[in-house]
């Protein structure tokens, strides 16, 4: 019962934070471009509008189940991320998982959805999926290596243990292991599908990418999971590098600070092509990660 309530609370928190953060992102971008921008609730409206569409077209059973898989994947992922430390609440089932599991769970949903895109038979969608998988191949190597530096530092893959080891600001991994944070920052932005690495779902490229055939309520489900996933990833990085949080307000503040950083980076740089993205990740963040490995492992 406790787990069930806890899970519902986590899902609700993720959803609310999700649309507010993304609404903020749109408004932030608008202000940078000297316009008023939409209201901060705009993403809620968009999502609700799609969920309330009266007609939905499907291309066969697999097409229907794809968004369900991606939503289930998002919920599973966020339930395996501990939101708070030293608390009974907002833990989900995180004690039964670990960091490597979470990294893999992050891609379960998108891969499930890729099946749906494939079964729609639209070549533009599959092109988008291929680009997404290619970008994933680029970003995952430095991302995982950066997190491996953290796992090595604490000699555990448990997010709880890594969080517990960071008591006090001086012990935050951001301070004790800045190279790891620098390594994962850009791949993290890419995993959030944010500019400048947003070539996959960018509207004017390949005709909307993987989402080309999704409309109506299925698109609503995709938007919902996207908002929840954004928050789950932010919270994961907060747990790993910013010492976690002991109450909800602290969690929101830290996640927002991190979000502000990534948003600022996103707003400043133009979009990269897929192969440029991969090449960039294999040169700059991966080079930095190799440097970190040499410093951490070989020289100590």
């Amino acid at each position: 019962m406790h787990v069930l309530l806890d899970s519902l609370a986590m899902i609700a928190l993720c959803y609310v934070m999700g649309f507010l953060f993304q609404g903020f992102y749109r408004q932030f971008n608008a202000r940078l471009q000297r316009r008023w921008g939409p209201s901060i609730w705009q993403n809620l409206y968009d999502n609700m509008k799609f969920l309330l569409k009266s007609e939905t077209l499907i291309h066969g059973p697999m097409f229907f189940f794809g968004p369900m898989i991606i939503a289930a994947g998002a919920i599973t992922t966020l339930l395996f991320v501990p939101f708070l430390k030293d608390s009974d609440w907002l833990q989900g089932v995180s004690t039964h998982g670990n960091l490597i599991l979470i990294i893999y769970l992050l891609v379960v949903g998108p891969l499930g959805n890729a099946l749906a895109v494939g079964s729609s038979g639209n070549p533009f969608g599959v092109m988008g999926v291929t680009r997404g998988l290619t970008r994933l191949m680029g970003l995952e190597v430095p991302f995982f290596l950066g997190l491996a530096l953290v796992m090595l530092q604490h000699e555990t893959t448990s997010v709880h243990a890594i969080m517990a080891a960071q008591d006090g600001i001086a012990h935050w991994n951001l301070i004790t292991n800045p190279i790891a944070f620098a390594v994962i920052l850009l791949p993290f932005i890419a995993s959030q599908n944010a500019s400048p690495f947003d070539v996959v779902g960018a509207p004017v490229e390949v005709y909307a990418g993987p989402r080309v055939e999704f409309g109506g309520r299925l698109l609503g489900v995709l938007m919902t999971q996207n908002m929840m996933m954004t928050i789950a990833k932010l919270v994961l990085v907060v747990d790993l590098f910013l010492g976690g949080a002991s109450n909800v307000l602290e969690l929101i503040a830290k996640a927002f600070a991190l979000f502000l950083l990534t948003t600022a980076i996103s707003a400043a740089f133009p979009r990269l092509k897929t192969e440029q993205t991969v090449d960039f990740f294999w040169k700059v963040p991966l080079g930095l990660a190799v440097l970190g490995v040499v410093l951490n492992v070989w020289l100590i």
Binding site: I58, F64, F65, M68, I75, T76, L79, V108, V221
Partner: peptide, 22 residues
């Protein structure tokens, strides 16, 4: 967790109003 989430999401989707067309 994964199976449960999948079943619940699918059930909610079916229960919600609106028609689907193949």
């Amino acid at each position: 967790v994964f199976g449960g989430a999948f079943v619940i999401v699918t059930a909610l989707f079916w229960l919600a109003r609106g028609q689907m067309r193949r």
